[in-house]
Amino acid sequence: MTIEPRASSSAPVGVGSHEPANLGDILERVLDRGVVIVGDIRISLLDIELLTVKLRLLIASVDTARELGIDWWEHDPWLTSSARKSLPPGRGHDPALEADPDD
């Protein structure tokens, strides 16, 4: 079986052939996008703290993972003060203040 390629006269040089991508660009893609299918060794990337760079992992069964609400990252803690309160303290720097033009 093949997936029929579309006619493409000039394909780009090569995927990822530009300069090595910066870490932010890579992390947001591999951590937050891509196919999500349930593995056996279920590692839920919960609590990607936006205020610090610490990652926390939680091992959960499939059912527990659903109950825990894996879509937590849909909420922007730096915009929602209630969500911000539930996050552990950062390094004394609140990017929400920088992002807010009304200071």
Partner: peptide
């Protein structure tokens, strides 16, 4: 993350692929 992405990019240069999110593991 870089090695995971590099593997995906390697194959994506030759075939259409659906990249898997990091840490998709099976027994």
């Amino acid at each position: 993350a870089r090695r995971h992405h590099a593997a995906i990019a390697l194959i994506a240069a030759h075939r259409p692929v659906a990249p898997a999110r990091l840490a998709t593991l099976y027994a």
